[in-house]
Deep mutational scan, measured.
Amino acid sequence: MDALKSAGRALIRSPSLAKQSWGGGGRHRKLPENWTDTRETLLEGMLFSLKYLGMTLVEQPKGEELSAAAIKRIVATAKASGKKLQKVTLKVSPRGIILTDNLTNQLIENVSIYRISYCTADKMHDKVFAYIAQSQHNQSLECHAFLCTKRKMAQAVTLTVAQAFKVAFEFWQVSKEEKEKRDKASQEGGDVLGARQDCTPPLKSLVATGNLLDLEETAKAPLSTVSANTTNMDEVPRPQALSGSSVVWELDDGLDEAFSRLAQSRTNPQVLDTGLTAQDMHYAQCLSPVDWDKPDSSGTEQDDLFSF
């Protein structure tokens, strides 16, 4: 819950932080000083300027060897085509990944977070970031790969997607708890209302004896509580940590079903599988986004697919 609360507080303090972009060759504004600060901008989305290598189908939802083989196929196909790589912007948030063309600003792909089953910074092609997700059109699994400016960037994108998945799962947990509370309150309110109706004398007997209905007592009954809980029953509950912020979080049926399955089948359902080692994760978390744009010590960066 700490990640969720800190993310909400950060967004309320400075929503404009989320509009910064990394990996864009110096076009961005001043960047936060450390990885923790940038992680807090996830709610509205972190932007990464990358190059799209392509996509291939895979048979399993996750796995280092599986993704490595898929990336190898994608890279080989991209090299064989001889075409310049498409420059894209990857927007990562707890909602998922939005992929747009840098030149036309046209939407290429919009992947809900619950469809993503794996992401990684490839070991062999260490400047490549990739994720595996279920197609929104059918049940097939797709591996999408992107060329980053350097290994640090690939690791940073991988960690960002993993963190977005974690925050999304926490949102789901909060929403589920809130819905259970509202359902319980609604049920209790309905029981109270039913009890009051059972003990209320029939209207005919009131008229016969000349008694008047006590409207004041009726007004004191917990009807307002019942209506408050039943009027918006169809509205999706939102985490309290975000009250007053500009973010509107809505959970669709697909996300609810997917996270429910994860909660039942996995020990740590909030953790998205990645190909990063503990050492890689520690190294990337210690980086400032400013470091992502620094040239690798191995030599001059080449803006070309064939540089790796």
Rank of each mutant, 00 (worst) to 15 (best):
D2K: 01
A3H: 10
L4V: 14
K5Q: 04
S6M: 15
A7D: 15
L11F: 15
I12D: 10
I12C: 13
I12E: 12
L17N: 13
A18H: 08
A18I: 09
K19Q: 11
S21T: 07
G24N: 04
G25D: 15
G26F: 05
R27V: 12
R27T: 15
R29D: 05
R29A: 10
K30V: 11
L31F: 15
T36I: 14
D37A: 12
T38N: 14
R39L: 04
T41M: 12
L42V: 14
L43Y: 14
E44C: 06
E44I: 14
G45M: 08
G45H: 06
M46F: 03
L47Q: 08
F48R: 04
S49W: 02
Y52G: 02
L53Y: 01
L53D: 00
M55F: 10
T56R: 03
V58D: 01
V58Y: 03
E59M: 05
Q60E: 08
P61E: 14
P61L: 11
G63K: 01
E64T: 12
L66C: 08
A69W: 13
A70P: 01
A70N: 12
I71M: 01
I71L: 00
K72S: 14
R73F: 09
I74D: 01
I74L: 03
I74R: 01
I74A: 04
A76E: 09
T77V: 14
A78C: 14
A80V: 12
A80Y: 07
S81G: 10
G82L: 14
G82K: 00
L85M: 12
L85V: 03
L85K: 00
K87I: 14
T89Q: 11
T89H: 12
L90C: 02
L90N: 00
L90I: 13
L90E: 00
K91N: 09
K91E: 05
V92F: 01
S93K: 15
P94D: 05
P94F: 05
I97A: 02
L99M: 12
L99Q: 15
T100W: 05
D101F: 15
N102D: 14
T104L: 05
Q106I: 06
L107K: 09
N110T: 13
N110I: 04
N110D: 07
V111H: 08
V111Y: 13
I113Q: 07
R115V: 01
R115L: 06
S117M: 15
C119Q: 04
T120K: 03
T120R: 13
A121N: 05
M124N: 07
D126A: 00
K127G: 00
A130C: 13
A130Q: 00
A130T: 01
I132E: 00
A133E: 08
Q134T: 11
Q134Y: 05
H137W: 07
C143W: 02
C143Q: 13
H144E: 00
H144L: 10
A145G: 13
F146D: 00
C148P: 00
C148Q: 00
K150Q: 12
K150Y: 09
R151Q: 05
K152L: 10
M153K: 08
M153H: 10
A154L: 01
Q155N: 11
A156G: 05
A156W: 14
V157M: 01
V157D: 00
V157T: 15
T158L: 02
T158I: 10
A162P: 01
Q163L: 11
A164V: 12
F165W: 04
F165E: 02
F165R: 02
K166L: 11
V167Q: 11
A168G: 05
F169E: 02
F169K: 02
W172S: 02
W172A: 03
Q173H: 06
Q173V: 14
S175I: 04
E177D: 15
E178R: 12
K179P: 05
E180Q: 15
K181P: 12
K181F: 13
D183P: 14
D183Q: 03
A185G: 14
A185E: 14
A185K: 06
S186A: 09
S186P: 09
D191N: 11
D191A: 10
V192G: 04
V192D: 08
L193F: 01
R196A: 09
Q197K: 08
Q197T: 13
D198A: 09
D198T: 07
D198N: 06
C199M: 09
T200M: 03
T200H: 09
T200W: 05
T200G: 15
K204M: 05
V207H: 02
A208T: 02
A208C: 07
T209K: 12
T209P: 14
G210H: 10
L213Y: 03
E217H: 08
A219P: 10
L223E: 10
L223N: 09
L223I: 05
S224F: 08
S224R: 03
T225P: 14
T225A: 06
V226S: 08
V226Q: 14
S227E: 11
T230I: 09
T231D: 11
D234Q: 03
D234L: 06
D234V: 10
D234Y: 14
Q240T: 11
L242F: 10
S243H: 04
S243Q: 07
S243K: 04
S246K: 06
V248D: 09
V248L: 09
W249L: 11
E250A: 15
E250D: 05
D252G: 12
L255T: 10
L255M: 08
D256P: 03
A258T: 08
S260P: 02
S260M: 09
L262Q: 02
Q264P: 02
T267H: 08
T267R: 06
V271I: 12
V271F: 07
L272D: 03
T274N: 04
G275V: 02
L276C: 10
Q279A: 07
D280K: 07
D280S: 06
M281N: 07
A284E: 07
A284L: 02
Q285A: 13
S288R: 09
P289K: 09
D293W: 02
D293H: 10
K294A: 07
K294S: 08
K294E: 08
S297H: 06
S298M: 13
G299T: 14
T300A: 09
T300Y: 11
D303A: 07
S307K: 14
